[in-house]
Amino acid sequence: MKLFFDFLPGVLFLGALYLFDIYVATMVIMAAMTLQVLGLLVLRKKVTGMQWFTLAVILAFGAATLVLHNPVFIKWKPTVIYWIFATALLLGPVLFKRNFIQMLMKEQLTLPDHAWSRLNMGWAVFMAALGGLNLWVAYTFSEKTWGLFKVFGVVGLMVVFMVGQLMYFSKYMKSDEPGNEAGNP
């Protein structure tokens, strides 16, 4: 249910883009994200830092799109988010001595330090590439095609990337079943 709740603003954006135009779609995603965060607050659920950050970027870039009547701002929004994440992942170990991917996933995954470093770097490179790919699609294809890519294409790429990473890091994972440790089929 949470996945659907998180995915809903993008689907509403895409629906408004296909039914109306990018300006209506921008208003829809701004409203949907605002209502999503307000709903979490009313239900006394945790609003993550990522949700606050995404809301702020959507409101800022959405407002610029509407006020300046220029869709380039909303098209750049995903790239800005991806590149900020990539930068944070790259600078975290250097400036803060923190591996942010490890901080996010240490409850679900146990890896040696060198594997955490590779995972962090993999995500940083993936986010940087995703930002570039978003711009390429935004400037090469129609707004509706870009909308489809933004909502469904990015999700598909993330799933493929995560499956690839799971396969790569599976050698470090241990099974809960006795006698079935990693590397022991």
Score class of each variant (00 low, 15 high):
residue 6 D to L: 12
residue 7 F to A: 09
residue 54 T to W: 02
residue 27 M to Q: 15
residue 31 A to Y: 09
residue 108 Q to H: 06
residue 8 L to N: 03
residue 179 G to T: 08
residue 153 G to M: 02
residue 134 N to R: 12
residue 131 G to E: 00
residue 182 A to D: 00
residue 151 V to R: 08
residue 111 L to C: 05
residue 133 L to T: 01
residue 139 Y to W: 14
residue 155 V to Q: 03
residue 13 F to D: 00
residue 56 A to W: 12
residue 106 K to E: 12
residue 133 L to N: 04
residue 177 E to W: 11
residue 146 W to P: 00
residue 70 N to K: 03
residue 90 L to S: 13
residue 37 V to R: 01
residue 155 V to I: 14
residue 5 F to V: 14
residue 68 L to T: 13
residue 151 V to Y: 07
residue 70 N to Y: 07
residue 42 V to F: 13
residue 119 L to Q: 00
residue 166 L to A: 14
residue 156 G to K: 04
residue 178 P to D: 03
residue 129 A to L: 14
residue 175 S to V: 04
residue 17 L to F: 03
residue 20 F to V: 08
residue 38 L to F: 08
residue 135 L to R: 08
residue 182 A to E: 01
residue 78 P to R: 04
residue 170 S to H: 10
residue 170 S to A: 10
residue 117 S to G: 12
residue 60 A to R: 00
residue 72 V to M: 13
residue 163 V to S: 09
residue 4 F to A: 10
residue 87 T to N: 07
residue 110 T to L: 08
residue 159 V to A: 11
residue 50 M to P: 09
residue 180 N to V: 15
residue 40 L to F: 12
residue 168 Y to R: 11
residue 148 L to M: 10
residue 64 A to R: 01
residue 150 K to P: 02
residue 135 L to H: 08
residue 164 G to E: 05
residue 5 F to A: 09
residue 50 M to K: 13
residue 77 K to F: 06
residue 71 P to T: 07
residue 70 N to D: 05
residue 169 F to Y: 06
residue 171 K to A: 07
residue 16 A to D: 10
residue 79 T to F: 04
residue 159 V to F: 14
residue 36 Q to C: 08
residue 158 M to R: 15
residue 11 V to S: 02
residue 99 N to Q: 11
residue 141 F to Q: 09
residue 174 K to Q: 08
residue 70 N to L: 03
residue 180 N to I: 11
residue 117 S to K: 12
residue 15 G to V: 15
residue 77 K to R: 13
residue 97 K to N: 15
residue 98 R to F: 12
residue 108 Q to K: 05
residue 16 A to P: 02
residue 48 T to V: 07
residue 152 F to M: 03
residue 156 G to Q: 10
residue 163 V to W: 06
residue 125 V to L: 11
residue 94 V to I: 09
residue 178 P to R: 05
residue 106 K to F: 14
residue 31 A to G: 13
residue 171 K to W: 05
residue 180 N to K: 15
residue 45 K to F: 15
residue 116 W to K: 00
residue 130 L to T: 05
residue 64 A to H: 04
residue 10 G to S: 05
residue 18 Y to R: 15
residue 52 W to I: 09
residue 30 M to V: 14
residue 93 P to T: 03
residue 161 F to E: 06
residue 84 I to C: 14
residue 134 N to D: 09
residue 119 L to S: 03
residue 49 G to V: 06
residue 103 M to A: 13
residue 61 F to K: 01
residue 30 M to E: 01
residue 22 I to G: 04
residue 88 A to D: 15
residue 54 T to Q: 06
residue 178 P to E: 03
residue 175 S to D: 08
residue 16 A to C: 10
residue 87 T to Q: 15
residue 51 Q to R: 11
residue 159 V to T: 13
residue 39 G to P: 01
residue 148 L to R: 07
residue 74 I to C: 00
residue 11 V to C: 04
residue 33 M to K: 05
residue 3 L to I: 12
residue 14 L to D: 10
residue 159 V to Y: 15
residue 75 K to H: 09
residue 31 A to P: 05
residue 59 L to W: 11
residue 105 M to L: 12
residue 132 G to S: 04
